[in-house]
């Protein structure tokens, strides 16, 4: 039933919890795949370029960070690949998910404080609202 899974990550601690749940969900089917989705927004671009220099190193560092999740998934015998997207996190995840037709989108919740949510808004809330496929939000 859940064959084609999307796993939206931000690289935080919560991403690991989301990945673990994703693996459990994928194991329910015989040949499920998990696509790791990572969105780079403007401020992430700024701090990554500032810290790692050229864009080549920046993409390599991201690949390294995401391959931890990929290996974790593949170790459980589930095939997986990484997709890096650029744009506003919520909007980009929503558009991509609706184009790709996942059986389920798994989403980590970073758990921002009330003040942060007031200013920045909640990515997971927006995604839940506008994504057409089922969404699993991992707290």
């Amino acid at each position: 039933m859940f064959n084609k899974l999307g796993l939206a990550l931000d690289g935080s601690e919560h991403s690991h919890r989301a990945a673990d749940k994703g693996i459990k969900l994928a194991k329910l089917s015989t040949n499920a795949t998990i696509e790791i989705i990572y969105v780079v927004d403007g401020s992430q671009s700024k701090s990554d370029v500032l810290h790692y220099g050229d864009t080549l190193t920046v993409s390599r560092k991201r690949e390294e960070m995401l391959s931890i999740f990929k290996e974790k998934i593949e170790k459980e015998g589930i095939s997986s690949h990484i997709t890096v997207l650029h744009g506003l996190p919520a909007e980009t995840i929503i558009n991509y998910t609706n184009e790709t037709n996942f059986d389920c989108l798994i989403l980590g919740s970073r758990g921002r404080s009330r003040v942060q949510t007031m200013i920045l808004g909640s990515v997971s809330h927006k995604v839940m609202k506008h994504v057409k496929s089922p969404v699993l939000m991992v707290k």
């Binding site: 780079v40 403007g42 700024k46 370029v49 993409s59 650029h86």
Partner: peptide, 14 residues
Amino acid sequence: LLTASIVDDMTDTE
């Protein structure tokens, strides 16, 4: 040049 690299990264172009 720092800004150019940031825009490169944001738009995924060179």
